[in-house]
């Protein structure tokens, strides 16, 4: 599973997910992309599950880029513990995704295959997504 090598602090504050994505809204590498339409936390497990689903469908043809990285530690308190007593222990990692963020990019495969692969990947993700192709957006960018 993806996680940072080193961090400044073990735990972070929850924060709020307001507005649209600041960066990562346009194509950078591939021909096809999966764009988020919602805000949410995409966990390391979900990223991995989506990645595996895409690669399985592609049968190792083409190239995949993961455009998000789970760099936010999410804490959990143990079960059946009363409130208080400080913040819980880090449980997993998540990427903060806002509307407009490109999650995955693909190239080297037909558009139909890419669309099917992204459809499978979207089932593993907690956010609403949209398929994009560079050609449909007017070619070069």
């Amino acid at each position: 599973m993806l996680m940072p090598k080193r961090v400044k602090y073990r735990k972070t504050m929850k924060g709020r997910m307001r507005g649209q994505t600041k960066n990562g809204a346009s194509f950078a590498f591939g021909e096809y992309a999966l764009k988020s339409q919602d805000a949410g936390y995409v966990t390391d497990r979900q990223i991995e599950a989506a990645r595996v689903a895409i690669n399985r469908h592609m049968k190792r043809v083409g190239k995949l880029w993961v455009r998000i990285f789970p760099d936010k530690p999410i804490t959990r308190k143990p079960a059946e513990v009363r409130m208080g007593g400080g913040k819980g222990a880090p449980d997993h990692w998540a990427a903060v995704v806002k509307p407009g963020r490109i999650l995955f990019e693909l190239s080297g495969c037909p558009a139909v295959v890419a669309k099917e692969a992204f459809e499978l990947a979207s089932h593993k993700l907690p956010v609403k997504t949209k398929y994009l192709s560079r050609a449909e957006l007017g070619g070069v960018s």
Partner: peptide
Amino acid sequence: GAAVAGAPGAAGEPEVI
């Protein structure tokens, strides 16, 4: 800057600076 959990040398938690 990514570490793979479960890979040799990678701990459950990252290094805290």
